[in-house]
Amino acid sequence: MDMAVVAACSAVLLFGAGFHLYWGLGGRLGAGVSLPQREDGSPAMKETAAGALLVGLVLTLVFVLVLGFAGLIQLPVAHWLQKTAIIFWAAIFTLRALSWSRYFGLFKRVRNTRFARYDSLLYSPSCLLLGLGFFLLALTDAA
C-alpha cells in the first residue's frame, strides 16, 4: 500500500469534508463559489445546509474507508467489500472530474463564472486526484 497516496487522498477528503461541514453549519467563506452558476452568475441549484452537511458526512465516511482499506484503522467490514467500495468511489470521483456536464467537470460548457474557474483549478482536479489515487490503491492492494 502506497502511504503517500493514502496521505494525499486523505488530505483532499478532509479538506473537502471540512469545507462542506463548515458551509452546512452556516459558514460563508467560499460559499459564493461552492455551487455551479449559470452564465449570468445566478445559482444553478439551490443551496441548502442539509445538502452541504450530507456531502461533508459522505466525504468523512469515504476518508474512514480509506483509513480502513489502508489498514490504519479496523473496520467491521470484509476487506474485499472495502476494496469494492474504493473502486466504486474511484469511479465516482473520476466521473465527476471528467464530466461533460453543463456546469462542472473538466469538459463543462459554462466556463465564464466564478464557480467554473474554481472548478477548473481546484474542484475537478481534486476529484481526478481522488479517482486516480483510489484506483491506484485498489491496484496495489496486496491483501
Rank of each mutant, 00 (worst) to 15 (best):
F135L: 14
I73M: 05
S101M: 03
W89C: 00
V58A: 12
S99F: 09
G131R: 09
W100G: 12
V77P: 05
W80F: 13
R109I: 02
F135G: 02
T94H: 10
F88D: 03
V110S: 07
L67Y: 03
A91N: 06
V55C: 04
S101G: 04
S126P: 06
K108I: 05
M45Y: 11
V64D: 00
A85L: 15
K108A: 10
T48H: 11
D119G: 03
L95S: 11
W89M: 00
A49F: 11
R102W: 04
Q74W: 12
V62R: 00
R96C: 08
R117N: 04
F134Q: 04
K83Q: 14
F135Y: 15
V58R: 03
G56E: 10
R117E: 03
V64Y: 10
R114N: 11
I73P: 00
R114W: 08
A85E: 01
V64P: 01
G68R: 02
R102K: 15
G131K: 09
L129T: 14
Y123C: 05
M45K: 12
H79I: 08
K108T: 06
G68I: 02
K46Y: 07
F63M: 01
A90F: 06
V62M: 06
R114K: 13
V55W: 06
W80R: 14
L95F: 12
R111C: 06
T84D: 01
V62A: 06
L137G: 05
F134N: 02
T113F: 07
G51C: 09
F135R: 04
T113H: 09
L122Q: 00
F115Y: 15
L95H: 07
P76W: 07
T113C: 09
V110P: 11
S120A: 14
T94L: 14
Q74E: 14
R96W: 06
L121I: 02
V62L: 02
L106N: 09
Y123Q: 03
V62W: 04
